[in-house]
Design a binder for these strands. Structure first.
Length: 583
RNA sequence: GCAUCAGUAGCUCAGUGGAUAGAGCAGUGGCCUCCGGAGCCGCGUGCGGAGGUUCGAUUCCUCUCUGAUGCACCA
């Protein structure tokens, strides 16, 4: 479906054209003065300069040509040159009904035929998920869903940290603790579980810093693994296996799932040819013992250091792996875009990698590489979030805390069993965490305040869900709660302000989703849903739906709140959480 | 030192080359013959500072202050 804004623009464009003005000035936006109008066009003011004419005169030229159009109930020129527009209620109602009947509410498939690889998550094997893994998972998942909804073929890759020195440290430690580790069929036989692995790594890492002999053995183990010594490689595969099983479980608790469970190790086979190509084509040269590719550009204000491909000791490093991963992705998926949802502190690294891959031809010029850098989660003191004892909080604990906080708020309801309360608390708790995170611009640091996020009032996930539950409750009383997707009631032209406002807000969906998609901005979806929730609650208080005596009007009300519910549901799905039926 | 990003109400956050810069929280005053009051309706001296571009700047540019971050072989 065309956006309402575009429909209005088309009409104005003709008028501008007929008056001898350039069509480009017929740009329409949502009104920033809802008390005056619903949509506005500021084009007359922009055009004033080109045509040496007072803006209001231009606007006055346009008005007579569009005044009688059936879309508008009023359109007028206002000093100094605004064109203020109000829609005809019948047109608005028609549009909303069309949305209700359209696939995806009429949202456009802007990504049709294009593939996107989105790289988010980035957990390390054998290390627990902690609070630092929250943002990439939540933001990446939401962007993935928004892109997919917009018609893109999206491939989400967890991109495991599963290669390198850390693996050597773990293998060497396990070898020491369980001399027969290479012979056992499964790690469980030796008592090596995920939680054991999670303890092994930090201990080994600490020890290697003090114990040179151990560090040397760990490097040796790393070397053997990377050369695929069968014993080491098989043990590594077993470690990956139990670790990935555990990671899948944890991500699933977050409502996050990946299409690919690839890792750094999967890029290794592509490295030798890639390095060879860079040398042959003359991009790579030796500098201070390392093999590097220059990526500086003339316009740089600050010198961008060259991208290191091979270290002076002959080993590869993260740039090498990231580049080889691009080689692999281009070869396997031919993506139009690759999006990285990564800590914003890695911006320089990715800038180098992106430039290097363009320069050396790993990606063609029309493949877009996006860096979606997210900011730090801070505590109430404005400093990076820590547990009380200064440690790093595990993700499970965080989710548990949120769930418990919600549970406390609903547990005393007498019409709910404990089991039901617990499962509701889980759903609502997740909404609190996700909405709390996603409602901030991804790129900014933000204050993580779980108590605030878990509030049922204000701009929170639970408030959105509360609104949905409230709609559901009305529908239940009207025996329509099972007909949400099949109800054929029609929405009538609005007669009250609040009804009209809700209809109007619902139409904004198409524009908002498109913006959120193009800008990788889930927070715009949050804002939109909050807007809808507020509009619904205003409508609810001005109109008693169940007691409405005019039955046609009542059906229209019901159709309207059903559409509001469906759109809210779609919206929270784009954010990556669900709604309970009651709460 | 250089660079990047940020600075909006007491607090947490939106927003925009245009009209009177918005929400939530906190505070405070109303609204229950109420479909879920976890709600609704009120109440605000705020764009770090100084210049510039513009008919118009919180938005763009320069300088400046403050904070976060990054500056080749860790990821």
């Amino acid at each position: 479906m065309k956006k309402i804004i575009n429909l209005i623009e088309e009409i104005l464009a003709d008028a501008f054209d007929n008056c001898g003005y350039d069509k480009k000035y017929a740009k329409v936006t949502l009104s920033n003065r809802p008390d005056l109008c619903e949509f506005q066009c500021n084009g007359a003011m922009s055009a004033a300069k080109e045509y040496h004419k007072a803006p209001i005169m231009i606007a006055n030229d346009i008005i007579p040509l569009v005044k009688e159009h059936s879309y508008f109930s009023s359109i007028e020129a206002v000093n100094p040159g605004f064109i203020n527009i109000k829609l005809n209620p019948a047109f608005l109602a028609d549009y909303v009904n069309d949305m209700a009947n359209a696939d995806k509410f009429g949202c456009t498939d802007i990504g049709e035929g294009k593939t996107i690889v989105i790289d988010y998550g980035g957990p390390n094997v054998a290390k627990p998920l902690h609070i630092g893994h929250l943002r990439p998972a939540i933001i990446g998942e939401s962007i993935k869903r928004i892109k997919r909804f917009s018609g893109y073929n999206v491939i989400g890759d967890v991109h495991l940290g599963d290669w390198g020195y850390q693996m050597g440290l773990i293998i060497e430690s396990l070898k020491e603790q369980h001399p027969d580790i290479f012979e056992t069929a499964s790690l469980e036989e030796c008592g090596v579980t995920v939680s054991v692995l999670e303890e092994v790594y930090p201990a080994a890492s600490k020890r290697a810093k003090e114990d040179e002999e151990f560090a040397a053995r760990a490097h040796e183990a790393t070397y053997k693994l990377q050369n695929k010594n069968p014993e080491y490689y098989n043990l590594w595969k077993k470690i990956i296996d139990i670790s990935v099983t555990d990671l899948k479980k944890n991500y699933s608790n977050l409502n996050v799932d990946f299409d690919l469970w690839m890792g750094e190790s999967d890029a290794q086979p592509y490295i030798p040819d890639m390095v060879e190509m860079m040398k042959e084509k003359g991009f790579a040269y030796e500098s201070n013992g390392a093999l590097v590719v220059d990526v500086a550009e003339e316009t740089d204000k600050k010198e961008v250091p060259p991208c290191i491909i091979v270290k002076s000791d002959g080993a590869y490093l993260y740039s090498t792996t990231d580049l080889a991963t691009i080689v692999q992705r281009v070869q396997d998926y031919k993506p139009a875009q690759i999006i990285y949802v990564v800590d914003k502190r890695q911006e320089m690294h990715f800038k180098q990698v992106f430039r290097c891959s363009k320069k050396t031809g790993i990606v063609s010029g029309d493949t877009e590489l996006f860096f979606v850098g997210f900011g730090t989660m801070n505590g109430a003191d404005g400093k990076p979030f820590k547990t009380r004892d200064g440690g790093v909080m595990r993700l499970e604990k965080l989710i548990g805390d949120a769930t418990a906080s919600i549970y406390d708020k609903i547990k005393d309801r007498d019409d709910m069993t404990e089991d039901e309360a617990a499962s509701i608390a889980k759903i609502v708790g997740l909404s609190a965490i996700k909405y709390g995170d996603l409602s901030n611009q991804a790129s900014k640091d933000y204050i993580f305040d779980i108590d605030r996020f878990c509030e049922f009032e204000g701009n929170t996930g639970p408030y959105i869900l509360y609104t949905m539950v409230r709609i559901k409750s009305i529908l239940r009383k009207c025996q329509l709660d099972n007909a949400i997707d099949s109800c054929d009631y029609k929405i009538l032209p609005a007669v009250s302000d609040s009804e009209r406002d809700l209809q109007l807000k619902l139409t904004n969906l198409i524009e908002l989703v498109e913006q959120a998609c193009n800008e990788n901005a889930p927070h715009k979806i949050c804002q939109y849903l909050y807007d809808i929730a507020n509009s619904f609650n205003g409508f609810y208080h001005q109109n008693n739906i169940i007691k409405e005596e005019d039955k046609e009007r009542q059906k229209s009300f019901l159709a309207l709140i059903i559409l509001a519910y469906r759109i809210l549901k779609q919206g929270i799905d784009l954010l990556g959480f669900d709604a309970p039926d009651r709460m």
